[in-house]
Design a protein around this nucleic acid. Structure first.
Lengths: 174, 174
DNA sequence: GTCTATACACCGATAGAC
DNA sequence: GTCTATCGGTGTATAGAC
């Protein structure tokens, strides 16, 4: 998975995947008969599982909504190494790949947005506004990743992470 | 330029660049003796010029600050085709490329942030806050591009575009 | 299941005719 | 300045021994 994340789909050559897994190129085709595209699909499924079972898990616990969002924020920050690591989803939306992995990518974003929106709804916000807030949260996470990597400055990402509860839950209009 | 933007650095093969320019691969080496890397650098310089002379031009005009930001927003929306086109800068921050084009990318983001911050300063906002607002604006533009492409829904991008003046100029604390 | 060996296409890049 | 032809290297993928 690391190879796809670090180098993107085109840059994740079988040689790099071989080096990352310890298996020879030919052996990879035993596990993934449909080649590189299948490997990427499995990685996306793996990411989906990780998103659900790790990052989004705190959102479904009980307790203070703000605290739950803060817990997710910490996991997000760790997952992206404080903004130094890029987002696989963002990389796979680029270029001609969007056509190939579109539905899987969309699925992942939807899961994330729905989970965040559900928390906002719990606090009494209207459904439509909650969804917009959840989208805003993801916009800022993804944008902060781009800017932090582009400017070599971790501050934007850190700022967004600490601001997430406010983005989701502040009561005034937005 | 379109090839790099659509396919990314690795995906912009010389064959595609040849097709996009109408020149044979060998002819490209006459104009860019240092090969593909040089082509990408020239593209980035071209983008820099376009950013300054087109997108950021309204910010330096006179008149209402909000109106100037709105003018830039329109140009940004057109440039990214309502969010359907990805951002070259974001693509080039990914993978091992960050090391090669890092300084040029950083330069471009800095120019954009400084130009936006200057407008906020004009309206009486403190310098530090203005800079944060400018960073926030870019975060949301970049994040909206990712989300819009990832979810196949233009709404997030449109929402961010229309919200840009507010992000930059609202007077209350943030 | 993993390996070595290999097939074939395409990559970035160069030489040299015109 | 643009082309055809070609280089060495690497890409994805397959065959077959073990």
């Amino acid at each position: 998975m690391g190879a796809f994340r670090q180098y993107g789909y085109e840059g994740a050559t079988l040689s790099r995947l071989s080096a990352a897994t310890g298996l020879e190129r030919a052996s990879l085709y035993h596990h993934f008969p449909n080649g590189k595209e299948q490997m990427a699909r499995v990685v996306l499924e793996f990411v989906k599982l990780g998103l659900k079972q790790s990052i989004l898990a705190p959102l479904e616990s009980s307790g203070d909504a703000e605290q739950r969002i803060r817990s997710m924020s910490m996991l997000v920050s760790d997952f992206y190494c404080g903004g130094q690591q890029g987002c696989l989803l963002a990389m796979f939306t680029s270029g001609a790949l969007g056509d190939i992995f579109q539905s899987q990518i969309k699925d992942l974003f939807t899961i994330w947005i729905d989970a965040l929106a559900a928390v906002a709804v719990e606090t009494g916000l209207p459904a439509e506004l909650s969804r917009r807030r959840a989208e805003d949260a993801l916009i800022q996470i993804q944008g902060a990743l781009v800017l932090t990597r582009g400017t070599q400055d971790q501050m934007p990402f850190k700022r967004v992470i600490s601001r997430l509860p406010q983005i989701m839950l502040e009561q005034q209009a937005a």
